[in-house]
Amino acid sequence: MVHKDLEFRGIRLEHLGMYFEELGAKQITESFPYVFEAEGWKGEILEEKEIAFTQSFKVNAIKIRFYASSEKLLNETIKHYRYKTTRIGG
């Protein structure tokens, strides 16, 4: 299996888990690392930490690991997952 790690900032942990489910994965574990499995791929929410840019500006940072049976499926899964995490500023 091939894998890739990504970090997402400013998105709630619950939403990141929900995005795995929306892509067809089932949640396997109830604590870190949260594991989501689907046919041919799986995702793990490994950790959450808080990053302080200033004393008053803080955001969460969540590390996620994607696994897939092929490089093509890995890239496709990450592409769909990133689409769900896209935020448009205004």
Rank of each mutant, 00 (worst) to 15 (best):
E76G: 01
Q27F: 02
H3V: 10
L16N: 10
G40E: 02
K4P: 00
K42P: 00
F20D: 02
A25N: 08
Y19D: 02
S70Y: 09
E76R: 08
R87Y: 13
N60G: 03
G43Q: 07
Y67S: 02
E50W: 11
N75F: 10
I88A: 09
E47S: 15
G10V: 09
T86K: 09
K72C: 08
Q55H: 14
Y81T: 06
K79V: 12
L23M: 14
E76C: 07
I51G: 03
E39L: 05
E14R: 13
G89P: 10
I45N: 00
T85W: 00
V35A: 05
L73K: 15
R65M: 02
K63W: 06
I62A: 01
L13K: 13
G40N: 08
F8T: 12
E30M: 11
R82Q: 09
I62R: 01
S70W: 05
I88W: 08
Y34R: 08
A61S: 11
G40F: 06
A68K: 08
G17T: 12
I45P: 00
A52Q: 06
E7K: 15
V35F: 05
A61P: 04
F57N: 10
I64G: 04
L74Y: 11
R12W: 10
M18F: 12
K72S: 15
K72I: 14
E71T: 11
F53Q: 03
L74E: 11
E39I: 04
I28R: 06
G90Q: 13
S69W: 04
T29C: 03
E50Y: 11
K72G: 12
L6Q: 13
E21Q: 15
E7Q: 14
F8W: 12
D5Y: 15
E39A: 09
Y81P: 03
I11P: 01
T85E: 00
G40L: 03
T29K: 11
E39T: 10
V59C: 05
G24H: 01
E71S: 10
K84P: 06
E21H: 10
F53A: 02
S56Y: 13
H80G: 07
G43N: 06
Y19G: 00
